[in-house]
Amino acid sequence: MMRERAVLLTLSGLLAGAGCSATSKESLVPPQTVEMDAETLRKFQHEVEEYVELRQKVLTKIPPVTTKATPDQIAAHQKALTEAIVAYRKGAKRGEIFGPEVEAAVRRTLHRAFSAPDGPALIKEIKSGNPTVEGNPSARDPTKEVKQPVTLTVNTFYNSAAPFSSVPPSLLLKLPLLPDQVRYRFVGRALILRDTEANVILDYIPEVVPDPSIPR
């Protein structure tokens, strides 16, 4: 059995081929440093790549959207993309992308970040826009807010009326870099993986934010 070994992996070099520029000595931008052993990281990247390939396949079967689209075109494209992804991934289960080793590594990373001196500031930013904490201004009285629930289930719709949590940049620099089609978000205390444009929850890890004041 291979002994799991946590290594500090600087991804800037690995990701250069994926369009991410290497961190130069002059740069003020910190490097992408993911505390995850190489094999676990490779597995996670493989799962994400598989999803992106599936998504590409879906895109060939639905009407395209241009970068000068009308509201009707955008809405139709999003609906078609969302429905097709849910159909293609029918039966998908939690942990298929965030496998056990990946989940453990992500939990360690987040625990370390939230336990650091600036942990409370990170949690404050995660609450911002988090759909269990923040609602939408009401159209009748925009000084009042109305919450929009999000059901935390794999391969279900992310309520299109709900806001998105902030994901602090320093956390993004510690988590594995994702392609443009997929995003990390927080819903309540869970970290989710969501398609960037389709309203689909692809996977999630529950109870990663250690703040009981955040509703589940």
């Binding site: 241009t66 970068t67 000068k68 509201p71 494209h77 999003q78 826009g129 299109s160 995003r183 444009e197």
Partner: peptide, 19 residues
Amino acid sequence: GNHDNPDERNYKDWNMSGQ
């Protein structure tokens, strides 16, 4: 913003060119 769906970047009148 955090209430905007990322696909709004494709909307012609917001001149984001899909970015």
